[in-house]
Design a protein around this nucleic acid. Structure first.
Length: 486
RNA sequence: GGUCCCUUCGUCUAGCGGUCUAGGACGUCGCCCUUUCACGGCGAAAACACGGGUUCGAUUCCCGUAGGGAUCACCA
């Protein structure tokens, strides 16, 4: 791969990147980092690139790479150019480290791991900050033990300080004395993360590094490397991390889930997750529901809050409910079909899809996620006799004697099987019986839907059709008789 | 512990010296709509962490305190 650059960016074009390490799924915090990078690039007419940081061979896995790409695709964060795999570029990383040896900004360090551990233990005991003491920094090459393994360290400046004009955090200054000479190339010749990011960002033409603020401290070390190399400095934007509801950091070990879980297990829509993530740590006046194009127009790094924000599932669900109601009915039918098939333990037929499609407008108002939507849709598709839940059984038991039977007789003679006509009949019956409409409708709802809650009863009856509706009422009547005679 | 960052309703946020008796959203609680449940509508309770400055005037600027977070590897 050598010094070739995957894509050469022009001097003025904005280039951002999302650089996850494939050690697990794409978690929610990573998704937000990706979103901000994506939005910033698009807002500035620049490029958004994806880099897989797989230099940690022990922890990187192929399925994780697939999961990240899958998550990015689901969220529709389209990246430009090809994906850069960091491990494949290790020769170039080594080349850069060696060039530092030549220009005097790097040096070989022969300290062993045990030696360094002893050094740290002493520092710890003396309550001193734990830093590499630079023991090989100025030693002549003649001191080098023969055939001994060594690492290449950066000869970082020890005087003065560095200030980063962070686009989110504002100016942040750290004294060089706080930083030690970091390892760039390990003794086995592989690059460290610090070296790899700097080289890859440079070679990819990255102009704006937008990442979690857990990297803020790293930025100073990376800047020192960039300066030693004489390369142009990117702009930095360190966005705060997302915390769990308990205020603790949301990590893979602590409650963070992959975006696939939000999709599959929680039944959320990608546009809802995106909207929620956008509003977490960023705001635009009182706006809550913000479309992708609108976000691209409005998004700016300066408005990103500096403190971490807590993840609130309730609000995410609410935003999802909004997008669910706005979603196309046919799309929702497709999305809930697999869930329904699993629940019913049979394939979803064209007829099923047809009735779901016709009922979706009402169904989706009652759900805030696809799981609930699927569950609420089930009663349309169950075969007779449909199961009664407790609420339904209670309604049936408490119904005025004979109303259900008289309603059955009445509907049996109805010719116009439309919601409006059915309602008219029911109202007439209620009036004749001296009952409120609810006293007639509720037992009917129980019989027809098996539940005490459902979309509008007459719409349901119309969607179910005459035969199915009448059959279900008959089933309820039959069990009622059985109970009476038992 | 060192260094760095942060601090407005329970949560996400608006606010960028006077318009703040602090606005919106989620959640919570009422009411309305209504054949149930939702949706929708209306309304309520709910916050500027604390202490000093600066200023005619601080939620807004500065400094402390407290609290929270990040980071200190031949991991990324």
């Amino acid at each position: 791969m050598g010094a070739s650059r995957p894509t050469e960016a022009s001097d003025t074009e904005v280039v951002t990147r999302f650089a996850p390490s494939p050690t697990g799924f794409l978690h929610i915090g990573g998704a937000r980092t990706a979103l901000f990078n994506y939005l910033f690039a698009r807002a500035n007419g620049g490029q958004f690139r994806l880099r897989i940081e797989d230099t940690d061979r022990a922890r990187s896995t192929e399925p994780a790479v697939a999961a990240i790409i899958d998550g990015m695709s689901w969220l529709d964060f389209e990246w430009d150019s090809e994906i850069v795999y960091q491990f494949a570029r290790s020769a170039r990383h080594a080349e850069v480290a060696n060039s530092l040896l030549e220009n005097g900004h790097g040096y070989r360090c022969y300290a062993t791991a045990e030696e360094l551990e002893t050094m740290r233990a002493e520092q710890r005991a003396a309550k001193l900050p734990m830093r590499y003491d630079g023991r090989w920094r100025d030693r002549p090459a003649s001191d080098a033990p023969e055939e001994a393994p060594f690492v290449i360290r950066l000869k970082a400046p020890r005087e003065g300080s560095v200030t980063i004009a962070d686009l989110v955090q504002g100016p942040v200054t750290v004294a060089n004395a706080e930083l030690d000479d970091m390892v760039l190339l390990r003794s086995d010749g592989t690059p460290t993360y610090m070296l790899a990011v700097v080289v890859d960002d440079h070679d990819m033409g990255v102009t704006h590094v937008i990442r979690g603020d857990d990297h803020l401290n790293n930025a100073f070390r990376q800047l020192a490397l960039i300066r030693a190399l004489g390369w142009p400095e990117p702009a930095y934007a360190h966005i705060p991390l997302i915390h769990g509801a308990d205020g603790a950091k949301l990590s893979k070990r602590h409650g963070a889930l992959g975006v696939d879980a939000y999709r599959d297990e929680m039944g959320l829509l990608p546009e809802a997750v995106e909207n929620y993530l956008l509003r977490l740590g960023w705001g635009h006046g009182d706006d809550e529901i913000i479309s992708r194009p609108q976000a691209i127009e409005w998004f700016d790094l300066a408005a990103v809050n500096r403190g971490p924000s807590r993840f609130d599932m309730k609000k995410l669900e609410s935003v999802n409910g909004h997008y669910l109601r706005a979603a196309d009915d046919a799309r929702l039918v497709v999305l809930i079909s697999p869930r329904i098939a699993a629940e019913l333990d049979r394939p979803v037929t064209d007829g099923d899809r047809d009735i779901l499609q016709r009922s979706m407008a009402e169904l989706k108002k009652r759900a805030s996620n696809l799981n609930d939507l699927a569950m609420a849709s089930l009663f349309y598709l169950r075969s007779r006799p449909i199961p009664m839940d407790d609420g339904a059984a209670k309604l049936l038991a408490m119904a005025a004697p004979g109303v259900l039977a008289r309603a059955r007789a009445l509907f049996g003679s109805v010719n116009d099987w439309s919601a409006a006509a059915l309602e008219e009949q029911a109202r007439a019956l209620a009036e004749a019986e001296g009952l409120k409409l609810g006293a007639v409708a509720q037992p009917l709802r129980a019989a027809v839907t098996g539940s005490a809650q459902s979309p509008g009863l007459f719409e349901v009856m119309a969607a179910l059709g005459r035969d199915e509706t009448l059959g279900r009422i008959d089933d309820a009547l039959a069990t009622d008789t059985e109970r009476a005679t038992a």
